[in-house]
Amino acid sequence: MHQQLTSLSDKELISRTRKQKDREAEGVLMDRYSHLLVAITLPQLQKNPSLDPNIVFPTLLQQLSASLRTQSIYKANEWIMHMQRGYLNNQDKATPFYPSREARDLLHIENKVDKATTNAIDRQEIIVRLQQALQRLAPEEKKLLDEFYVEQKSFSELAAAKGWNRDKVRNQLKTAKTKLAKLFINQAYVK
């Protein structure tokens, strides 16, 4: 059972947890993100010695478990990050999670692309529209995206070519992608 659950997507695990009250699915989801949770919490734990990992992580898991049943979660990584930030900033109050507009746009396009993998016509339509959207982007951003996605250059290569550090390369890529997603969605509305 556990083996079967690990191959399921986040979305399916969340729906299992909600509809069937499947504790195992919840556990698999938490297990999938546990190492990232530990990694992002480590700096806080080292900064603030009063935080006990034996208390912080179980409490965090409880809060995550409670919010899993009540809140609408589009992307699990974004949700976990939000919950962790909220817990460490204000331990007494659980801040509700609202997915950002950008995240929703991204998710929408990702779902479309995912569906189009088996349908050649849809896939071609998306490619055409993406190309159109790319044409409307700033040339630097278009170039950066081309280099990264089409030419498959790594962060370090791009950083070396541009003279930026890795973080800047990543952030530039992220903003360019967000803009592209916005253009893509707006295109759809115009159409």
Binding site: R32, Y33, S34, H35, L36, A39, A76, N77, L106, I109, E110, N111, K112, V113, D114, A116, R123, I126, I127, L130, Q131, L134, L145, Y149, V150, K177, L180, A181
Partner: peptide
């Protein structure tokens, strides 16, 4: 042109082995 579609392909988070 086909590779452009990769921009929006959904990829899972980094696993504990990959990190």
């Amino acid at each position: 042109n086909d590779k452009v579609i990769k921009i929006f392909s959904g990829i899972r988070c980094v696993s504990k082995d990959q990190l």
